[in-house]
């Protein structure tokens, strides 16, 4: 376990010295920041737009980090031949793979934490700077119905916003550690489930990089992500094919091929839709994820995700154990 931790920490060190990580993180933060601005364009429920865009950014940029940082981690060690001196040390090759995986996952989670902090800060800041609250800060009622500016309005305006910004950041910070209020109710659950989904997709990124080039690994990981996210549609498609033919056994020719190809793709790739709880948290129970009709309890999804991670990492270790490093 100690050696896995050592490799994981070194992988984290390697990842945080990678410029791609910062580009992705900055881009995600810019999108979240802008979500506060463009929410004004929304006719109704602007905070829903902020939530949707923020949570989608956390998930998507977490995925991009898994792909663009993950696919190079194992490949670079082999390509640059740094693996020679590592495998000659008293460690197992599977310890190396696990170390790389947990190091990458730690990097992704640190980034998710930073993005979440920013996301909650934007939400709190937006809520605390509603026009009526700004007015309250800029003017005070001297007699019923008669208002007067509280000092220089421009200075008061900036001071108020600066104060709210600080307070929002503080509240966002404690939200990450479990504090919730109606505005952020259920959002941590969405982020945690999304983090679990990323753990699954990261295991695939590491798995592909044990036997292919970075470009191919990226393509494979994207395909896994797309198929995994479209599981519900693929399921509907296979159901429709079977229904049209009057049963699975009645399928012939191209339809049979399509059915079994779709069936295999759906069963090999993880059902990533299960980790997406955004609909539930943002729009309420009437807009729940359609996949929740199969799995309604979170811990079942957690076990499902962990089993996938375990299985994929076992396969990755088996392949890596047999590899010759020329």
């Amino acid at each position: 376990m100690h050696k896995i931790t050592v490799i994981a920490l070194n992988t984290f060190k390697e990842a945080v010295r990678n410029k791609v990580l910062y580009f992705l993180l900055i881009f995600a933060l810019i999108i979240m920041g802008f979500s506060g601005v463009i929410s004004d364009l929304s006719i109704a429920a602007p905070e829903k737009l902020i939530k949707d865009l923020g949570l989608a950014s956390i998930d998507f940029f977490g995925f991009l980090i898994a792909v663009f940082v993950g696919i190079y981690l194992v490949y670079n060690e082999i390509d640059k031949r740094t693996i020679y001196t590592i495998v000659s040390k008293p460690i197992d090759r599977c310890q190396f793979i696990l170390g790389k995986y947990f190091g990458l996952l730690f990097t992704i989670y640190v980034n998710i934490a930073i993005m979440s902090l920013f996301f909650f800060a934007v939400l709190y800041f937006r809520e605390s700077t509603q026009p009526d609250m700004v007015n309250k800060a800029l003017y005070h009622e001297i007699t019923p119905g008669k208002w007067e500016a509280a000092g220089n309005p421009a200075i008061q305006y900036y001071l108020f916003h600066a104060k709210q910004f600080g307070l929002s950041a503080g509240k966002a910070f404690i939200t990450i550690f479990g504090y919730t209020e109606p505005l952020t109710q259920g959002l941590m659950r969405v982020i945690l489930m999304s983090a679990l989904g990323l753990a699954v997709i990261t295991s695939f990124a590491i798995f592909y990089s044990t036997f292919s080039t970075p470009t191919l690994s990226a393509v494979f990981t994207f395909l896994t992500f797309i198929i995994g996210s479209l599981c519900e549609d693929i399921l509907r498609y296979t159901d429709k094919l079977a229904e049209k033919a009057g049963g699975v056994n009645m399928l012939t020719g191209a339809d049979s091929l399509k059915y079994w190809f779709a069936w295999a793709a759906m069963h090999i790739t993880p059902n990533l839709g299960l980790f997406d709880k955004r609909m539930d948290a943002i729009y309420g129970s009437e807009f729940v994820n359609p996949l929740d009709r199969y799995v309604t309890v979170d811990w079942v999804v957690v076990v499902y995700g962990l089993l996938y991670v375990g299985g994929v990492l076992c396969l990755a270790s088996m392949i890596f154990n047999r590899r010759n490093f020329k």
Partner: peptide
């Protein structure tokens, strides 16, 4: 102890960090 031909190491690490990392791998 093993030194490969034309060795390449984790170039993002400083000299002492690198030896410390390998020392930890040796336990």
């Amino acid at each position: 102890g093993f030194l490969p031909e034309n060795p390449a190491f984790c170039d993002y690490l400083k000299g002492h960090e690198f030896l410390n990392y390998y020392g930890e791998l040796y336990g």
